[in-house]
Structure formats: structure tokens, C-alpha cells
Design a binder for these strands. Structure first.
Lengths: 106, 106
DNA sequence: TAGCTAAATAGCGATATCTCTATCTAGACG
DNA sequence: CGTCTAGATAGAGATATCGCTATTTAGCTA
């Protein structure tokens, strides 16, 4: 385990050190089961748009947007812009990779 | 994965969301390889005492003590008091348990 | 173009975290 | 008992984080 990888992990760990972001990341694992219906876009194709996540989280739009930005910067979710909507989706491969490197590093 | 377990994990994640604590926890994986000689106590039996960790970390004694407290409260290290020395040791079982529940929860 | 909607950014106050110095507590020992 | 050492605790200053409201940006549509 190199120090470089560890530093990457440290950023991801900081991203996960928040109940709100932990919740969002878990909800994104099963969008259909965790979010209300989405007028535009398919949960499993495009992802979940911000306002839908906001409704579930019960936080202001800017706060949700900030959490999503942190999750995105940590590489845990992908972002896809379609028209005026921004769809966020778990990056399952990245999550798995993080868990694997953490298991090796810790 | 219950919410209770997730909350426990959240505390551990906060404990790990610090480069200094991540370093200390890694160093404790191989005390002989990462720390200078210890006058009193066996690394693999009693653990590593605070002043030895302090020398490696290059931080003040109270700061190191605070980090160790957080790691201990998160359940990642055990503490053993012998005379005037406090020995800290990785709780390998707890670390593994955390990684397993995180893998299941995330 | 004007107006509407979705989401990001700016900026702010409250709280938490990180590190330090100073002090306190506890044990060892003359 | 006084003194030394090991480490915890208290308290302060600097920075980071969290949540908010207000505003800006970008896309859509009449």
C-alpha cells in the first residue's frame, strides 16, 4: 500500500465522515427503494437528480448540492448533466475499489 | 445492515478521517518496523507507549494523546495501563469487523 | 427576449476539529 | 513526604465543516 493510495483513501474517508453523505450514498445503492418517483430519467440509467435526493434528505438544495459535490470529488459518484438536470449515480466500481484498498491499507 | 451499525461505522469513519490517525493506525500494524526501540514493554504483547508514538508522529504529547483517545473511543485500539505507561495496541479484530460491516453497509 | 425551473456558487453564523501551551493526575522512588 | 516521569485534561487560537439564505448560472419554453 503506497502513501499515494493512502492519501486518496484519506480523501474518501473524509467524504464518508458525515452521516448525511453516508445516507445519500446508501440511498443511491437502491434508488427505486429509497427515493420517490422521478419525472425525468431512469434511476438505473441516468441516476438520481438533485431535487429527488433533496426531498429524501430533507435539507436545503444548496446543502444537498454541496454533499454531492464532495461525494463526486471523492470519486464515489458520477455526475451526468442532461438538459437542466444533474443526475448522480453511485460509482459501484469506485466504491468497491475504495473498500479493497482500504482493506489492504488499514 | 441496520442503522445502528451504520451509526457505529460513522463514528469509526470520523476517527479515520484524519491523516495523523490513519498514520498512527498503520504504524501500529507493525510497531517494530515503524517505531524506535521501546525501553519498557513488548510491542506485540503490551503495545506501544505514547511517548514512542509521539516521537514518530512529531507532534506534541497532548495532540498525540488526543488522537489516541479518538482511536480508542472508536474501538480501533486497545489501551493498557502498566505503572506510569499507557500502551496502545491495534485491535485487529475490531479493525476487521469494521471493514466487514463497512463493506456490507456501503 | 422574458420568464420559468434546476442546480451550482457565494457568503454567513454556528459548531467541530486540529494543534499548541499550561496544568493536573498518577505512579515510581529517593 | 518531595521530586521526577508519563500521560491525560483544560483552554485557546486557527482552520474546517455544516447548514442556511441569497444569488448566479444554465437550460428550457412561450
Amino acid at each position: 500500500m503506497s502513501d499515494v493510495e493512502l492519501r486518496v483513501d484519506a480523501e474518501v474517508l473524509r467524504a464518508l465522515a458525515s452521516g448525511a453523505r453516508l445516507d445519500i450514498l446508501r440511498w443511491l445503492k437502491d434508488p427505486a427503494g429509497n427515493f420517490g418517483p422521478q419525472a425525468v430519467g431512469d434511476f438505473d440509467v441516468e441516476g438520481v437528480c438533485v431535487s429527488v435526493i433533496q426531498d429524501r434528505a430533507g435539507m436545503s438544495q444548496p446543502t444537498v448540492s454541496a454533499h454531492l459535490k464532495i461525494l463526486h470529488q471523492a470519486g464515489l459518484v458520477t455526475r451526468r448533466k442532461i438538459g437542466p438536470w444533474h443526475f448522480y449515480k453511485r460509482d459501484e466500481q469506485a466504491v468497491r475499489r475504495f473498500l479493497d484498498t482500504l482493506s489492504a491499507a488499514l
